[in-house]
Design a protein around this nucleic acid. Structure first.
Length: 548
DNA sequence: GGATCCGTTGTAGCT
DNA sequence: AAGCTACAACGGATC
């Protein structure tokens, strides 16, 4: 097989697709093409939840199947990329590459990996070419423009788009040369994880991605009327586990779906019709994605509390008990807990749900650093994306210049007028917090206010079958507002403002005596912590494209 | 340089 | 039911 001249390798990393794949197109100008993926131990079980890993493997399976339909196949190697690639450049494993093509990746880990790979290729006299494809803009080229300023508003983002000119059309799938090599199959999730995937709603892969996109675009009204704040954070009636949005974000994250293909498909839908506009429209969601990619690529320390021009210094607390309760959905706030349990179970959460839980963890209630929540999302979300995740957490923690004013705090018990779009049937909460199944809807979001008799009748004693609220929202909110304000003035408020205690004790809003006994565990950490529409739509799922 | 406006998605209470 | 106001009051952009 491998002729002496060597083959052209197509290294799939993101961009797990055949459509609109420039690296594939370029490689297929040669007669021998080796499509491959490297399972990098950097993305291991402690970094990636089982659901996202399963999604990745499904995507690889699909990619392999599509390649086989065309007489080729996907080789899956396991190991550190530079070691695997050294073997491929040397001609071990029955393959010898003399050229390497891949899509650029602007995440910090990917950049350092790729720099290493470029050196290696030079040593082996392997020619390398990479292409911008994961984003609408060429991120590096945009940032390199001397006039570039990090965009912190939709307005500035739109002017960057305008200056960049029209978005190029997707590439067609090229004719792919045959490949006959045995082995290097896509592994099974059970060979890698002892846990079993629990997410069923999002099968990975390009075919699923394209079919979802078709489904979304089949309903032009839906696309034309799409306004993010009007989509329901609590899923669809009858199926609270189903997103009320497009559900495309995991596919964009892995590049199962080309962002250009999606952009033009949506463009087709809205062209010549009355339609919603950025920032709330679907195109608007995609512009936020670009914005965060630009920020991630241009702002030093974008993922940190210190040295980050997009992050104001706030003396966040350090309370592992709070963090864990939040992470596991045991805060005693049913809406928050339902959302967090949904994340753990399914790897998905509506964008507005992310707002609710992120605000709750940070400036709203628990006063924990956004980086802690960021890490949880980074591991568990199917659509976890470095730039978007960091950008959204900065936004929600209120520390970024693009954040909403810090004093706008979400109520963790959203009522019918809440912008969080909680349904009032309680279907969503009851689905993910089944302890509360019997609770009358008037108490569902605040079950601790139910009289004991009602709690007994519902089979759910608060403090026993379901936790008491971990903090008193009203008080925590007040104190956090004061602390945030002080921090903006360069002050750290004295001890009496500590809202954090690891043992919330018998705390109901009606019982709480307030500040007196609450400060013992609270650590006002002055050292920055861096330890490490249609609302009820008929058809399609959709989701947060900006997805962080 | 000061005033004003605006920022994808706040909430509660009133009319 | 939609729209107003009070609440408390940031900071970047624009005039």
């Amino acid at each position: 097989m491998a002729a002496s001249s060597g083959a052209a390798g197509v290294w799939f990393r993101k961009c797990l697709r055949l459509h609109d794949n420039e690296a594939l197109v370029k490689a297929c100008a040669f007669s021998e093409v080796v499509p491959f993926f490297i399972l990098d131990p950097h993305f291991n079980r402690s970094a990636v939840g089982v659901n996202r890993f399963a999604f990745l493997l499904q995507s690889l399976q699909d990619l392999d199947a599509q390649l086989r339909l065309r007489g080729s196949r996907l080789l899956v190697f396991q190991g550190r990329p530079h070691e695997v690639l050294a073997d491929l450049f040397n001609g071990k494993a029955g393959v010898r590459l003399s050229r390497l093509y891949f899509e650029k990746d602007t995440e910090p880990y990917a950049r350092s990996r790729d720099v290493q790979v470029e050196c290696l290729a030079k040593e082996h006299r392997v020619s390398i070419e990479s292409f911008s494809g994961h984003t609408l803009l060429d991120i590096d080229a945009t940032v390199a423009n001397p006039k570039f300023k990090p965009p912190i508003s939709m307005k500035s983002m739109q002017s960057i788009m305008t200056a960049a000119g029209p978005i190029r059309k997707p590439f067609d799938i090229p004719k792919i040369p045959p490949l006959n090599i045995e082995g290097f199959e896509v592994p099974k999730i059970s060979n890698i994880y002892s846990e079993v995937p629990t997410s069923t709603g999002f099968p990975g892969g390009e075919q699923e991605a394209l079919s979802r996109l078709r489904h979304v675009c089949a309903d032009a009204d839906y696309v034309c009327q799409f306004e993010k704040p009007k989509t329901a954070s609590t899923g669809r009636p009858g199926c609270p586990w189903e997103p009320s949005t497009t559900g495309l974000s995991p596919y964009l994250k892995f590049g199962c779906l080309s962002v250009r293909t999606a952009w033009h498909a949506i463009d087709q839908c809205i062209r010549g019709k009355r339609h919603s506009e950025p920032p709330q429209s679907l195109h608007g969601q995609m512009l936020f994605r670009e914005m965060f990619y630009l920020l991630g690529a241009s702002v030093p320390n974008f993922d940190r509390n210190e040295g980050n021009s997009m992050c104001k210094p706030i003396p966040w607390g350090d309370n592992p008990v709070f963090l864990q309760a939040w992470q596991e959905g045991r805060t005693g706030y049913p809406f928050i807990d339902a959302l967090m349990r949904q994340l753990n179970q399914t790897g998905y959460m509506h964008h507005l749900g992310r707002h609710a839980v992120a605000c709750f963890l940070t400036r709203g209630d628990l006063w924990q650093s956004w980086t802690c929540g960021r890490d949880v999302f980074d591991k568990l979300l199917l659509d976890a994306d470095w730039a978007l995740n960091n950008g959204n957490w900065l936004w929600l923690a209120g520390v970024a210049p693009f954040s909403a004013p810090y004093f706008r705090i979400y109520d963790p018990c959203p009522g019918p007028n809440s912008s969080l779009n909680a349904e009032q049937t309680g279907e969503f909460v009851k689905h993910y917090v089944p302890e509360l199944k019997g609770m009358p809807s008037k108490y569902l979001y605040k079950p601790w206010t139910a009289p004991l008799a009602e709690q007994k009748k519902a089979g759910c004693i608060i403090g026993q079958d379901y936790p008491k609220p971990i903090v008193d929202h009203k008080l925590a909110r007040e104190e956090n507002l004061a602390r945030f304000k002080a921090a903006l003035n360069g002050q750290v408020l004295p001890e009496k403002f500590g809202c954090a205690t690891s043992d919330p004790g018998p705390m109901c809003s009606s019982l709480s005596k307030g500040r007196g006994k609450r400060a013992e565990v609270a650590t006002l950490n002055t050292e920055p912590d861096e330890r490490k529409q249609r609302r009820w739509g008929k058809g399609p799922k959709d989701d947060t494209l900006a997805g962080g």
